[in-house]
Write a protein that binds this DNA or RNA. Structure first.
Lengths: 153, 153
DNA sequence: GTACCTGCAAATCTTTTGCACGACA
DNA sequence: TGTCGTGCAAAAGATTTGCAGGTAC
């Protein structure tokens, strides 16, 4: 399994579909088709996908899987620490593998998303902790603003 | 009218209900009861209210005003620059007078909201602009994290 | 008088939940 | 075999929209 980050309460960061299925079995859960396919989709594709996106990709391989099952499985994977969700402002939540999560800058005009490094938030994180005792999680909510292209107009 | 902030594209920052109604009339709009009462509620109360909250307070004074009218009027006030909305993560959007807007830190465990000064974001804002050409708006999306009380548990 | 605004109902979009059936360990 | 998971339908919560009638200017 991958390294566990020091500062985040990540329970586990498995690197493969089978490792996650083993974790599920180990805690009394079952390795079903819908879970296997969802994990394949998550490990196989890019980040930034909504539940609807993931549901569509899962259904392409296993047509009987219902969107409500996708939501339930995403919830469980999130409880296990394998998946995280993030709010981008308007529009639905996006889901990613926890091991690939990172902060986002999102343009409030055109919706463009920029991947930001955690370091961008270092100063804010330290200051918020010192001033308010508040431990910033820069990945859970995007940072809103205006991208350079929109600013030029 | 109040001073206009330098760095934000704020169209106007009126200080009273009547000033806003004058602005509405000046642009061909009408000073209706639902608009007057909504403005009274906005100027009278604290920030951080959802459309539902505002609708309830408006209805207390003018029972016939429908929630859809509140949404429509909030949208128009936002286009005028009088009101802004902000996303707090889970849950509905909150609305405030633009002149009273400020950044928020929101605890992802208990939901506690902390008012933050704009200066907290100075370093992030400068760095994001330099690195990505991205002009951060720290007020439009809250910053997620864990408050000191929840961290102690 | 006429454009603008409103109430109401219904639609939309995202997510959650209840329930009875089906399948993994 | 018994529990856990699933599909389906329906509900829930937030917001938007179409329309016909009402009102400010």
């Amino acid at each position: 399994m991958g390294a566990v980050h020091g500062s985040h309460a990540i329970l586990a960061e498995p690197d493969t579909v089978d490792e996650v299925l083993d974790m599920i079995r180990a805690s009394g859960g079952r390795a079903t088709t819908s879970r296997r396919v969802l994990l394949e989709v998550l490990f196989g594709g890019s980040g930034h996908r909504t539940a609807e996106d993931l549901g569509r990709e899962v259904a392409a391989r296993a047509p009987e899987v219902h969107i409500s099952t996708v939501y339930r499985n995403l919830d469980e994977l999130e409880r296990m620490g394998v998946v995280t969700h993030a709010h981008m402002g308007h529009g639905p939540v996006i889901y990613q593998l926890a091991s690939r999560a990172h902060p986002h800058l999102i343009c409030e005009r055109c919706g463009t998303r920029i991947h930001a490094p955690d370091e961008l938030f270092g100063h804010l994180t330290r200051t918020a902790l010192r001033s308010f005792g508040f431990a910033v999680d820069p990945r859970h909510l995007a940072i809103s603003g205006v991208c350079s292209q929109c600013a030029d107009r």
